[in-house]
């Protein structure tokens, strides 16, 4: 007999133990997310409840307001929501074509060595901490913006502006978008490419009509991740946003204010309502991200129906 009954029993027990162990880990990590959201919710909702110790805030005027001034006790985030949406979407708009074409080059066109080198550069870019992007933006991008504005005869606030935020975010989401696109393009079945080439399509036609079409679902997933990063980026954005007190900001050379920069600026030097209201802003940010992801996922399903990756 090859089968040792004792051993079978032990293996079964071990199986049971590990199943429980992994489940405990999964519950632990997912409960963190729940705890965080619950905490932010509790803290963020409190200013709008009657009997709030620093004086109840009106929810409607908070959500629709167009002035945010701690010194006057005016807290309106309506314009900040719009600012956040604008900066993130324009950043995505700039970054998306650049990333997809870069990914196509790395995945399909570049010679092997160059492709490997470029891919590690992209991965490296993804690993750069956001504060480093921030100092780069405040040192370089603001200078470029200032110079650009001077061409139109506009004086900026030292280069801090909506444009600087958009450019910064476009650079920051580039690695995410690119590496997701590379993965998606590389996952396209080589049989499809062969079929296309065998039909007399050129390399370029094959790359655009087959590789990109088949990979669009994965590329779009990258865009969703990138947009999430653009919404959520705080440190670097706060360094070049300028934190305008009212808005929304549509002029690219004017300073702006995003949800994240609002939460971050002066967090440690404040107490009372001004401190608590940041949790409300955080709650708004969570809801904004949740909704835009939900909408994008619907779009993704629609465009991804014929996709394989």
């Amino acid at each position: 007999m090859l089968i040792d009954k004792k051993r079978v029993k032990r293996n079964k027990a071990l199986d049971k133990f590990f199943r429980g162990f992994f489940m405990a880990m999964a519950i632990l990590s997912s409960s963190f997310i729940v705890i965080i959201v619950l905490f932010v919710c509790a803290k963020g909702i409190s200013p709008f409840l009657p009997g709030y110790e620093y004086g109840q805030v009106d929810l409607i005027s908070f959500l629709t307001g167009s002035i945010y001034r701690q010194d006057q006790g005016l807290y309106g985030v309506g314009f900040i929501i719009i600012n956040t949406l604008i900066s993130a979407f324009i950043a995505l708009l700039i970054s998306f074509p650049l990333s997809v074409l870069t990914a196509l080059f790395i995945a399909k066109i570049a010679p092997k060595k160059l492709s490997a080198a470029m891919q590690s550069v992209v991965e490296l870019l993804a690993a750069v901490p956001s504060v480093v992007y921030g100092v780069f933006a405040s040192g370089v991008i603001t200078g470029i913006v200032e110079w650009l504005a001077s061409l139109f005869g506009i004086v900026t606030y030292g280069g801090s502006s909506l444009l600087a935020v958009v450019l910064l975010l476009a650079i920051m989401i580039f690695p995410t978008l690119t590496s997701m696109s590379i993965t998606a393009i590389k996952a396209v079945d080589p049989n499809l490419e062969q079929a296309s080439l065998a039909l007399g399509a050129t390399r370029t036609q094959t790359n655009f009509k087959i590789c990109l079409t088949a990979a669009k679902s994965g590329i779009f997933a990258g865009a969703i991740l990138g947009l999430g990063r653009a919404y959520g980026e705080a440190t670097a954005v706060a360094m070049v946003a300028g934190n305008k007190l009212f808005g929304p900001t549509f002029n690219p050379f004017d300073i702006t204010r995003t949800l994240t920069s609002t939460m971050l600026a002066g967090l440690k030097e404040t107490t009372g309502l001004d401190y608590d209201i940041r949790f409300s802003v955080g709650l708004v940010l969570i809801v904004v991200i949740f909704f835009s992801n939900w909408i994008l996922n619907i779009v993704k399903k629609r465009i991804g129906r014929n996709s394989v990756a």
């Binding site: 499809l192 079929a195 065998a198 079409t213 088949a214």
Partner: peptide
Amino acid sequence: VGMVFQKPNPFPMSIYDNIAYGPRCQ
């Protein structure tokens, strides 16, 4: 000289677009 492969490999598009693919590329 056209080719048909071992594993059926239709493009991830509509039936119409699959057949129109070659002529469209030309």
